[in-house]
Write a protein that binds this DNA or RNA. Sequence first.
DNA 1: ATGGCGCGGGGTCCGCGA
Length: 252
Amino acid sequence: MRICTFNVNSIRSRLEIVKNLVKEYDIDVLCIQEIKVENEKFPLIDEEFECVIHGQKKLHGVATCSKYPIEKFQKGFDGELNEPRFIYTLINNIHIINIYAPLGDNYAQRFEYKMYFYDKLFEWLEKFDFNNEKILICGDFNISHTSLDVWDELIWEGEVTHLPEERAILSKFLDMGFIDVIRKVYPNEKVFTFYDYRGGAVYKKEGLRLDYILVTKPLFEKFKSLEILTSIRRKRKPTPSDHVPIIAEFEV
DNA sequence: ATGGCGCGGGGTCCGCGA
C-alpha cells in the first residue's frame, strides 16, 4: 500500500498537481491538508478514490482519499476549535489519522490552542494498543523536532514550530512507541518538507521539516520505501504548494 | 529565473500561513 501525505495549500489551486501525483506515483491512500474548501465544493481527484472530506470555507481542512474500502471513519475530534484538522479512517486494517495541527505562535493565544490540540489528540489515542495495532499518524504537525529539522538552528531557536514545548510533543510520540519513518530513513541529515514561498527559500534550501509519517512497530515491520518529492516544490509551474508530498510504501 | 509569496474572499486590499 502506497500512502501519501501532502499539505496542498488549497486543493482547487493544486488539483492538476495532485491528479498527476496520484497517477504517476500510484497512490492508494492520499492524506491532504489545508484543502481550503467546503465539503460540497471538494473537486474530483480520481475516479478510483473514495474520500472522507472535512473542510470549511477559506481556511484549514483535511481529506483522506482511498482506493481501498474505508471501513470506518471519524471527521474531527474534541481537539478542534471549529477548525477542521482531523480525520480518522480504518483502511486495510490500518488505523490512519490525518492531521493538520495549528501553527501556534510564540506563547500567545494560538500557542495555547496548539497545546490543547495535541493534549486532546493524545487523549483520543489512548483507546489503542500501540504495541499490537497498525497505526499511522501523518500530516502537517507544524513542529520541527530537532536541529536536523530546521535549516538554521540559531535562527529557529525560540521560534514557532521549534519551541521546546513543541519539540517535546514529537518526543512524546516516539516515547509512546511511534516511529518517525522519515527520520528512520535519514537518521543524520537535514530533510525538509516545507519551504516558505517568500525569499526564495526553496532555491536556497532554507526549509523546515513540518510533515511526518509516524507508525507503530507492527506497521513499521511492513515498511518498504520512502519518497520525498522535493522536485515538485522546486518547479515554477504549475505553482506548487509550499509543502512537499511524501510517500511511504508498506507491504500490506 | 539570476529575483523571489500565494491563497480565498470579495477586492483593486486584507488576514492568514510558518
